[in-house]
């Protein structure tokens, strides 16, 4: 679950966000420079909002009033970067294991490595380096790496923008499947309205910091 109501001063305008999502996918559309990545980075703890409150899984992670700002590493979120941000000097296996919490795999949602690799169909890439795999494969590795941390929320920054239309379609379906399987809310940023409509249970548009509800596509997820 994510509840966020905050503002962040940016050069030229102020980003104002008010979102709440318990389950499903919230897609955020808007042109370049509208503040979409800033929204994700504020939720992730990679940037600090100017004011407001953010709760993830019911836990207060940011509050300007209470002067609270939990660092990114303790927020239990998964973050998919637009350029995947895979560590180029580590193999796929080591990339995926980088954020694996220590402890027993059988507890909670923690999955063993083999299962995550199989779920995303990347077992055969285990020993390769990011420079040796395709864009679609990189995206799957990045997803596996984020899921290994057993996050309570997954943030995706234009995850499909660098892919060809075919891989893009396949990964869109895969994202929906993963969300249903994983049962954690996803917040996905895209500049493509069609993609937002296909993936989103709830869609918002932001333009120069202003938020506008575009509707709820699948009420079943509310």
């Amino acid at each position: 679950m994510i509840e966020a109501r905050f503002g962040k001063k940016l050069p030229g305008f102020e980003l104002e966000i008010n979102i709440a999502l318990t389950q499903g996918i919230l897609t955020v559309v808007g042109p370049s420079g509208a503040g979409k990545t800033t929204l994700l980075q504020c939720v992730a703890g990679l940037q600090k909002p100017s004011w407001g409150e953010i709760r993830i899984g019911g836990r207060l992670v940011f509050s300007s009033r209470k002067a609270k700002n939990v660092p990114a590493r303790e927020r239990r979120i998964g973050y998919l970067f637009q350029d995947y941000a895979l560590f180029p000097h580590l193999t796929v296996e080591k990339n995926v294991l980088y954020g694996k919490p220590r402890g027993d795999d059988r507890r909670g949602k923690r999955l063993p490595l083999a299962e995550v690799l199989r779920m995303l169909g990347i077992e055969h890439l285990k020993n390769r380096y990011p420079g040796q795999i395709s864009g679609g494969e990189k995206q799957r590795v990045a997803l596996a790496r984020a899921l290994m941390t057993a996050p309570e929320l997954l943030l995706l920054d234009e995850p499909l923008s660098a892919l060809d239309p075919e891989t893009r379609g396949a990964l869109q379906r895969e994202l929906r499947r993963l969300q249903i399987e994983w049962q954690i809310p996803f917040v996905l940023v895209t500049h493509d309205l069609q993609e937002a409509e296909f993936l989103g249970d709830q869609i918002i548009r932001i333009d120069r910091g202003r938020q506008e509800e575009l509707g709820i596509c699948r009420p079943a997820f509310q």
Partner: peptide, 27 residues
Amino acid sequence: VDPNLEKAARTLGAGELRIFFTVTLPL
């Protein structure tokens, strides 16, 4: 070194020292 890699490591639960010795310095 691409700052996004360090940000990615932060979201994966790594502290600054671990990031320096496992991501930044090797790169």
